[in-house]
Computed example of a mutant assay.
Amino acid sequence: MTTFTRRGALGLAGGAAVLPLLGAPALANTKTTVGALRFTSHAASFVAFERGYFTDEGLDVDFKFFEAAQPMAVAIASRDADFGVTSITGGLISLAEKGAAKVIGGALSEEKGIDGQMILASNAAYEAGLTAPDQLDGKTFAVTQPGSSFHYMGAKIAAAEGASLSFKPLQKVGAIIGAMKSGQVDAWTIVPHIGKALTGGGAVQQIGMVADYLPGYQVTTLFTSAQNAENDRAKTEAFLRAFSRGADDFNAALVDKTAGDDAAEEMVKLVHKYVYTDRPYDKAKPSIVNGAMRINKNAALNMASVEDQLGWFKSEGLVKDSITTETLVDSSYAEAI
């Protein structure tokens, strides 16, 4: 785990820099742990941290980094982390059914006109004829775990194409990348900051876009423990406000590109502190820019997409039929779109 504290980062900036904004809630240096992946899609949290938006809300934030969605959901439910940004998975739904977790908002979304998640083929599969999604029948498809968002996307694409896929769980994104490069699996879907880097380097081939099959797909959600959602409303609302400010900055700089070139450059440098940290800036920049997808304004949640995902998990027997969207989502926080 890598830990950063906003209070420490601002400690030398002078007392005035860390004063809460007028009208902020009565929280003061409330310790808060935010779960994240080192993906451009998690940038709103990084922006809120670096620009003091969490501090403005009285939250003293640490990040806890994960390599897959499922472990993050477990950490939130066990209260090892307070808030997370991740996809809807069978594990998250089951934790919600047990009264341990709640979705409180939406984050990353597929949107027409903005490059989104890519459908990829290994070079070996591509050379053998897998050049489009309608040729997926009989192929192996990489997922982190059964019941992951990768499983959902692959299954929905296969159903649309009348294809039968063999799903191969590989636990971590890094392991999937290795398996794609070596031809151990045939296909995969992934966010553009990773997908474009792989295709640009010739490691894999792009054969389609997820948005063509799942328009408006709510890729990631904001979630917390049921305990936080029910009993710590001030803290939960403070997190959502700060996150939303970070999302607004990110969208303006890299998605809508209305903030200007200097703001875009500053944003990429900020994100680079967390994403592709093992690469020099000039090598990381194209992948970060290419990975800029819409983060929902005001953490709004696409309920139609959530309902579709929940319906698929039920149809596959991955979660109980009795689970409803109310089981999963606390609608008192989530603005529906």
Rank of each mutant, 00 (worst) to 15 (best):
D262L: 04
G195V: 02
G35Y: 01
R233M: 10
A300W: 06
L198D: 01
A101L: 15
Q135T: 12
L120D: 01
T258I: 12
T32I: 06
D321F: 07
R7N: 13
A96C: 15
P146S: 10
D262R: 08
T144P: 00
Q171L: 14
D308S: 14
G91H: 02
P192T: 07
L136R: 05
H193E: 11
D330T: 09
G202H: 01
T277R: 12
M153P: 00
N251L: 07
A187R: 00
V306N: 02
A81R: 00
V319F: 00
L12V: 13
N251W: 00
T40K: 02
E316W: 03
V210G: 02
G105V: 07
G208M: 06
L170H: 02
T144F: 00
F239H: 04
A128P: 00
Q70S: 13
A124D: 09
K235T: 13
G178T: 14
G84Y: 03
A16S: 13
R6W: 11
G216T: 00
L198C: 05
A16M: 14
T32S: 10
G162M: 10
G15V: 11
F63H: 03
F243A: 06
T224G: 09
A28Q: 13
G246V: 05
A107M: 04
V191Y: 08
T199E: 11
G15P: 07
R241G: 08
F49G: 02
M303R: 12
F223W: 10
D60A: 15
A155G: 08
A48H: 02
A24N: 03
G154M: 04
G317E: 07
T30Q: 15
N298H: 10
K172C: 04
A96K: 01
I337R: 12
V268N: 00
T86A: 15
E50F: 09
F223T: 09
Q309G: 06
D249H: 10
A107L: 11
S166V: 14
L10M: 13
T221N: 10
L254D: 01
T224P: 04
F63T: 08
A43K: 04
D115V: 14
L12E: 13
G311R: 10
K98V: 02
A17M: 14
F65S: 09
A175T: 15
S78T: 11
S244Y: 03
G52V: 04
L95N: 01
F239T: 05
